[in-house]
Design a protein around this nucleic acid. Structure first.
Length: 565
RNA sequence: GGUCGGUUCGUAUAACGGUUAGUACUCAAGAUUCUCAAUCUUGCAAUAGGGGUUCGAUUCCCCUACCGACUACCA
């Protein structure tokens, strides 16, 4: 019998989903889609103490942003998403809404002798633990201790039965068998064995809130939802034997899912797993989306930091998995095609922010200028730049534009202008936000000049030459100088040299000829010009800048620098 | 402490028991250009340690070290 592949991602809404959690969800999703099966999101909110409002919505939104869309589960509005046929009514997908179904399963286990009622209070147990800790021993609730504790195994039925009604703080515990070796198989780790003597009698169900604990809810729901593979974090590996025994106790071993335990994401430096603090400390997000907690502390998110979801998904996929060849760039569809649990790495993966940045850069360069311009516009607006759709629209704002679509005086530019800028600089950036740092001088007239660069290039002799070059650029007319370089086809000294088209291509060559034919120091002259145009001696090519800002602004900047320095 | 899992350049990783141990990121150098970036080329850099098994071990086994997870009426 082959069953339809059904996997689930089962987060608990105790806070924002961290990138390790997103990776777990992603691997589940990839596995499901590769096998033509279902990906289910189940909310494990059985811990009423740790419930955080908004966390569920955050989780769904984060996965949504990544393109990890459930076939079944809840959407960001809390509505049930279900694509399965009527034969398989699996809703609801929140365990708090399923509370009615767990008790009978827990009691079934008691009846079968696999579990028992326990009446020890949390305080009593805590005291016991503390007591044993003094003697440097660890308290375990199991066959060595359970007969000396208060439960339906150690007490007479006449004694404990009434307690079930009288008290509301009892629990149902699983009775871990004595000295038995549980043999397990993990899709990633292979064969694992463990002796039950190291395990404790886990609480399965709590009378206090009428809710199961993770272990029971998990097994019951995975069974009911017909889950075929459980792909989850490594932290669950130690409770795998319990889960095996639970399936056995229920008599469900025939349909028990296969298990795969993923290693954890580690800090980029030092010891331990990746935590919220690392992001703040090292300057990168650990969460997919921005999150503001109840104290008002915000944690940055990949989305808000300018990462593309495709880049984020790609880098996450490659953290702990590889395709077996040397490809590194994958779309979601390609990941679905290439993914395999066999190639998931057993050891923990240390997150590398530099590589993350590189991924974004790779995706940034594949985007169209139009799309990027759309994103860049909001950055521009933050800097007080107005972007209009066409030159005519600008007219109403009292603006006069260059042919290229720029109005520096009023800070108004056309969308077309922005797109042209983006096309020119997109290969230089990792993030859309970098565009501003790279090309702000294509939107605002520089008012300061980098001290170091000015010291190097702001010289009277450079400037006087630069002025002559500027004259040539503005008038478009000049002459060849005496130095003709390679003799053959060189034009005669004094013959006419002109700029016929005011574009990068149209300007670049004549300007170069103008300078070279005079044997002026190219670097010094150009950098002096650049200093005036950019405010620093680094940046785009002079011809590029000039063609963008236009003659008038060009002249203004050449003039400005004289007054400023 | 106990149980389980893990360990290849700084990082992510590749390598049927046989390779000069490969690739990417980072870093450095060179090329190119009017500068910066981009790009291209080159370079630096690893099998945790010790025992076995084997003609031969990154690969299999054992020990040690280190790292991690778990050890709740949390998930």
């Amino acid at each position: 019998m082959t069953r339809r592949t059904r996997v689930r991602f089962a987060p608990s809404p105790t806070g924002p989903l961290h990138m390790g959690g997103v990776r777990t969800a992603l691997y589940n999703y990839l596995y499901a889609k590769q096998h033509g099966g279902d990906f289910i999101i189940r909310i494990e909110d059985t811990d009423s103490q740790r419930f955080v409002p908004g966390a569920e919505k955050y989780i769904i939104e984060a996965l949504n942003w990544c393109g990890i869309i459930p076939d079944e589960g809840v959407d960001s509005e809390g509505n049930v998403v279900e694509t399965a046929s009527e034969k398989h009514p699996h809703a609801p997908y929140r365990q708090s809404q399923r509370r009615g179904i767990y008790r009978k399963y827990a009691e079934e286990l008691v009846e079968k002798g696999f579990a028992y009622y326990a009446f020890d209070t949390a305080e009593e147990l805590g005291a016991k633990r503390a007591e044993m800790e003094v003697q440097k021993e660890t308290f375990i609730y199991n066959h060595t201790t359970r007969m000396s504790l208060r439960n339906s195994l150690s007490m007479d039925e006449s004694e404990w039965r009434p307690l079930l009604e009288e008290r509301t703080d009892w629990t149902i515990r699983f009775r871990i068998p004595e000295n038995r070796v549980v043999k397990m198989d993990d899709l990633i780790r292979g064969h694992v064995e463990i002796n039950t003597d190291t395990l404790d009698d886990k609480v399965l169900w709590k009378r206090a809130d009428e809710l199961p604990t993770y272990h029971l809810a998990n097994i019951v729901d995975d069974h009911l939802m017909e889950i075929t593979e459980v792909i989850r974090g490594e932290e669950w590996l130690p409770s795998l034997p319990l889960h095996y025994m639970l399936y056995e106790a229920f008599g469900w071993q025939d349909t028990m899912p296969r298990f795969a335990h993923l290693s954890l994401l580690l800090k980029p430096d030092g010891k331990g797993k990746l935590s919220k603090r690392d992001g703040d400390r090292l300057g990168f997000p650990v969460f997919p989306l921005k999150w503001v907690n109840s104290e008002g502390e915000t944690s940055r998110g990949y989305r808000e930091d300018g990462y593309f979801p495709e880049a984020f998904v790609n880098l996450l996929a490659m953290l702990g998995w590889n395709p077996g060849d040397e490809r590194e760039l994958f779309t979601m569809d390609e990941l679905i095609e290439a993914f395999s649990l066999e190639r998931v790495i057993k050891s923990g993966a240390r997150f590398n922010p530099d590589k993350a940045k590189w991924y974004n850069k790779e995706y940034l360069r594949t985007k169209s200028a139009a799309e990027l311009a759309g994103l860049f516009i909001s950055v521009l607006e933050e800097h007080g730049i107005q972007v209009v759709d066409c030159p005519k629209c600008a007219l109403t704002a009292g603006s006069e534009m260059t042919a290229g679509g720029a109005d520096f005086k009023n800070g108004i530019f056309t969308r077309r202008y922005v797109e042209n800028v983006v096309a020119l600089i997109q290969e230089r950036a990792s993030f859309v936000a970098d565009f501003w740092d790279i090309a702000s001088y294509l939107f605002v007239t520089p008012s300061t000049y980098a001290e170091k660069d000015a010291a190097k290039f702001w010289k009277e002799e450079n400037y006087s030459l630069a002025l002559q070059v500027a004259d040539f650029i503005i008038s478009g007319k000049g002459t060849y100088g005496p130095a003709t370089g390679d003799a053959e086809n060189a034009p005669a000294t004094g013959s006419e040299l002109s700029i016929s088209e005011f574009t990068k291509e149209g300007i670049e060559h004549p300007v170069e000829q103008f300078i070279r034919s005079r044997e002026w120091p190219m670097g010094k002259v150009m950098n002096c010009l650049r200093l005036a145009l950019v405010g620093a001696s680094s940046g785009l090519g002079i011809a590029d800048i000039v063609s963008f800002i236009g003659k008038e602004e060009f002249a203004l900047r050449i003039e400005n620098i004289k007054a400023a320095l």
